[in-house]
């Protein structure tokens, strides 16, 4: 049996549709009930929904053999897992944004508000910029407007929220998309089954570039 952790939400539903199209369907997952785990014994797969930021924990700790997580989560938590596929779904970018017209003159410590403290710290450390990290859990865009921070490091999809709040992207840190990850030990002992799933999933990836 292969355990697959799916991220709850719209992305997870798209990912499940890919698994289904790849031949690893599990019809019970579409029933409207409170079950947490869905199994297809014939196809030897078991799915479960978890909070998107927890997927990598389930996979790293071996509770799931396979999982799908955003590159943002993987960069932030650096789990020790294999990243076998870029599913090319949920595409967006991790970016630095600030109030329109902001200029970093480099004279004082830069105040950075973010949910992704490790990514932000790594980004500025690589250019030797002294920063003060302010960890927030939501509504990051508020921080520069209220003067809590100079800039924010956050996920930008369309940029509409930023524009409506007079914020501009000033640089892209890294492009983000959903990745298929695999537990390293599971890969050693279930190699063939996992390879088959990865191969079938690869055929489902839509490359638009």
């Amino acid at each position: 049996m292969i355990n697959i952790a799916l991220p709850k939400g719209r992305l997870g539903e798209k990912v499940y549709a890919m698994f289904e199209a790849a031949g690893y369907e599990c019809p019970s997952i579409k029933e409207n009930n409170r079950k947490l785990i869905f199994e297809n014994t014939e196809k030897q797969v078991r799915y479960f929904w978890v909070k998107p930021s927890d997927v990598s924990i389930y996979v790293e700790r071996g509770a799931a053999d396979i999982g799908v997580a955003g590159k943002d989560i993987l960069l932030e938590y650096t789990p020790d897992v294999y990243e076998l596929l870029d599913l090319n779904l949920g595409r967006c970018r991790m970016a630095v944004a600030a109030r329109r017209g902001f200029h970093d003159d480099g004279e004082r410590t830069l105040k950075v508000a973010t949910k992704f403290t490790n990514i932000a710290a790594g980004h500025y450390a690589s250019r030797g910029r002294e920063i003060d990290i302010i960890k927030l859990n939501g509504s990051i865009e508020l921080a520069p407007i209220l003067g809590l921070s100079d800039v924010i490091v956050d996920i930008v999809e369309t940029g509409t929220t930023l524009k409506e709040n007079d914020l501009d992207v000033i640089e892209t840190v890294v492009p983000i998309s959903a990745r298929l990850i695999v537990n390293k030990a599971s890969f050693k002992f279930k190699t063939e089954k996992i390879e088959n799933i990865v191969r079938s999933m690869k055929e489902q990836v839509k490359n638009d570039d």
Partner: peptide, 9 residues
């Protein structure tokens, strides 16, 4: 080295 049943090396 890995052992079947243990989630890491």
């Amino acid at each position: 080295g890995f052992l079947n049943g243990i989630c890491e090396g």
